[in-house]
Design a protein around this nucleic acid. Sequence first.
DNA 1: CAAACACATAAGCATACATTTATATGGCTG
DNA 2: CAGCCATATAAATGTATGCTTATGTGTTTG
Lengths: 110, 110
Amino acid sequence: MQKVPILKNISTIDPRTVSFLAKALADENRLRILMALATGKKSVSTLVTDLAISQPLASHHLRELKRALLVTVERRGPFVYYELADCRIEEIVATMHGLAVDLLANRTTF
Amino acid sequence: MQKVPILKNISTIDPRTVSFLAKALADENRLRILMALATGKKSVSTLVTDLAISQPLASHHLRELKRALLVTVERRGPFVYYELADCRIEEIVATMHGLAVDLLANRTTF
DNA sequence: CAAACACATAAGCATACATTTATATGGCTG
DNA sequence: CAGCCATATAAATGTATGCTTATGTGTTTG
C-alpha cells in the first residue's frame, strides 16, 4: 500500500475552499488588478488609470480581493496601497493560463 | 537586462483565458466532479450516486466542464464516460487548495 | 417494436454578480 | 475650516448562473 507522493490526496481537498479562491479569480478585471499588482504595490488611482476602469469599479473589486485574502491594504496619507498577499497567486494565475492556452489549442491529451 | 526565469512574463497572460478556466473551477459541484474523475473515468450515473446530486444537475455541470475543455467524453453502450482532459487539472486544484488553506489560516505573509 | 434504462435538454425560477451613477467618508492643504 | 483630492460605499439595473421539474433522445433487451 503506497500513497501518491507528489500530490495531496485528492479526497482531502475541500471543494468549498477551492471554489472560494476560484471565484475570486473568475473575473477579468480582478485578474487584471492582480497582474498589475504582480510588479509591486499600487494605489487605487494608479490601478484606475493603468487598467482604464472606473474608480468605484476598482474599489469594488479590490474589496472582493481583500475579502478573498488575495491582497493586503496599507494606507499612506490620502493614498491606499494594495499589494499581493502571497507570491503564489502569481504562480497559480500563470499556471492556469498555461493550461488554458493548451486546452484551447487542443493539445490536451498526451 | 535580465528576464524573470521561472514565471512567464505576467504581461503575456490573457486575463480572459484565465477567467475562462477559473469560472469552470468556481463551482463546488463541478470541483467535486473533477475530484471524482481524478481517480479515473466515470459514467454519469456513477457520479450521480457518488456525489449525491440529481442526474440533470450532473449532466448540466458535465456539459459546462466539457465546454471548458476540462473533460473528454466517451460513449460505451448506453453509458457515457467522462474523463479528465489533462492531468494538470488535478495539480492546479490541489495547488489552489493549498494556497487557499494558507490564506485562510492567515499565514499569508512570509 | 415496446418497455426500461442512461443520459441530455428545455423551461422556469431564484440568486449572485458585474457595472454604473450618485453620494459619502477621510485626509491634506491653503 | 473650507475646499480638494483619494477612496469607499449605496442604490439601482441588467445579466449570468445554479438548481429543479419536466420532457426528449438514444440504446439495449425482452
